[in-house]
Nucleic acid binder design. Sequence first.
DNA 1: ATCGAATGCTACACAAAATGTAGCAATGGA
DNA 2: TCCATTGCTACATTTTGTGTAGCATTCGAT
Lengths: 103, 103
Amino acid sequence: MVKRVRGSRTGRPIMVLLDLLGRRWVLRIVWELRDEPRRFRDLQDAIGASPTIVNTRLADLREAGLVELDPDAGYRLTALGRELFQLFLPLHLWSEKWARALA
Amino acid sequence: MVKRVRGSRTGRPIMVLLDLLGRRWVLRIVWELRDEPRRFRDLQDAIGASPTIVNTRLADLREAGLVELDPDAGYRLTALGRELFQLFLPLHLWSEKWARALA
DNA sequence: ATCGAATGCTACACAAAATGTAGCAATGGA
DNA sequence: TCCATTGCTACATTTTGTGTAGCATTCGAT
C-alpha cells in the first residue's frame, strides 16, 4: 500500500510520487545510486547530509520499493528505481541548457 | 547566474537542479501550473501549503526562470518551465505502474 | 581469543524550514 | 465610497534537518 503522506491527501500516485521526490535529498540519493551500489557512509559523504536524514530517506526509498540494501554490496536501486532514474536521465542534459539560459 | 544553494556545493547544473526540485512543493507547483495560469490563492488552495512557503517557492521558481507572473492571468510556466514539465510527463504514467507494483 | 576496521544506524542538542492564522497594501469594479 | 480580489507579509508554533558522538554487529588478520 502506498503511504499517504504530507501534501498528498488524495493518494493519487502522481501526487504521492511528487511528494516523495520533493523530500530533501531523495532525488539526490537516487542520482548517486545511478550506476553502482554505495555503502551508507559512502553515500552520506557523497551527498553531504547528516546520517539521520540519510537513513530516514533511505527508509522512505526502500518503503517505496525504489532502493534496496544488498549486504554484500551496499545500497542500490531496485528495478523500479532504475526505471525511475531512466525517466530522469533527460534532466541531466536539460540542466546544462537551463544553466546556459540563465547565465 | 545560477544560485548556489544547500546541497549543491559544486554548482554543477544537475546538482543545482536536483536541489531546486527537491525543495518541498516545487515539483507540485510545476505540476499544478502545467496547463493553465493560476492565481496565487488558487494555487495555494490547490496544493494546500501555507502562503509563506508558496510565495518562497514561487520566488525560487521565478529566479530559476521556470515560472513567471502575468498580472492579467496569474502564475504560469515559462518556455523553460514547460520544457522541464515535458521531461516530467512520463512520470505520470510511470507513477500508476509504480503504485500497482507496490500494492 | 582478540584486536581493529568497516558496517548500518541511533542519540541528542541545536538550527533551519514549514505551518496556520491573521492581516496589510494596492487595484479595480459597482 | 465600499467591497472583493490580488499578491504577499508577520509571527508564534511545530516539524524537519544538522552535526557530532558513539553504539552494536560482523569479519578478517594477528
